[in-house]
Design a binder for these strands. Structure first.
Lengths: 97, 97
DNA sequence: TAGACTAGTTTATGTTATAAACAAGTTTAC
DNA sequence: GTAAACTTGTTTATAACATAAACTAGTCTA
């Protein structure tokens, strides 16, 4: 039986966010915006879902007087991503004999 | 930028169906039921969505007097699956320098 | 011939993803 | 100095979606 996939990582945008964050130390809101192509509203919502799940840490500050949101993947988030990769790999490699 | 993922293949059940069908000549409804763990209702709905999209061909007949639904992946479905695999592979292998 | 079973389909519902609208402050132009 | 435009997000309204429960249509069994 094919393995279950983490529901949180089944939407493109959340998977993009986690994938991107897995490759950097941290990322600003606008950097994620550019690299995902999402709208601000959608990005905000999905970051918060990942935050609520404990997959990302969010820090709020200021830069040049403007609000600045910085995101970082947590160890829980990294583990979830790695498990997702392991699971989806089984789909990719699945072949009946 | 990470590539887009086919929305039809972003739910676990539909991805399971297409993955399973990609590995066999054809499959009966009950075989899909067992191999996905889905409910009949959900399986019926999702097969029909894949049929509407032209990803699977559905044939209805009888076996031992009972209705029998047989599914087969189409070339369009196989192509979509291969493109999905190519896209998700870029997520899996994504790393910032 | 009544009850239980098979093989699905339809529908009712709750959840979810998303964009549009909004908020709160900053910079610019006059 | 103040109105207009811009920045950086958040909240909300809506439409789409996934899912299980309820239903349908027919078959077997006792």
């Amino acid at each position: 039986m094919l393995p279950n996939l983490d529901p949180l990582l089944q939407t493109q945008l959340r998977l993009q966010i986690v994938t991107l964050l897995a490759g950097v130390d941290d990322a600003e809101f606008n950097w994620l915006l550019e690299n995902t192509g999402a709208t601000r509203g959608n990005l905000s919502v999905q970051i918060n879902k990942l935050k609520d799940a404990g997959y990302v840490k969010v820090e709020k500050g200021f830069k040049n007087n403007y609000p600045l949101t910085t995101c970082q993947i947590t160890s829980k988030g990294r583990k979830a991503f790695e498990e997702y990769v392991a699971a989806i790999t089984k789909y990719i490699n699945h072949q009946q004999k």
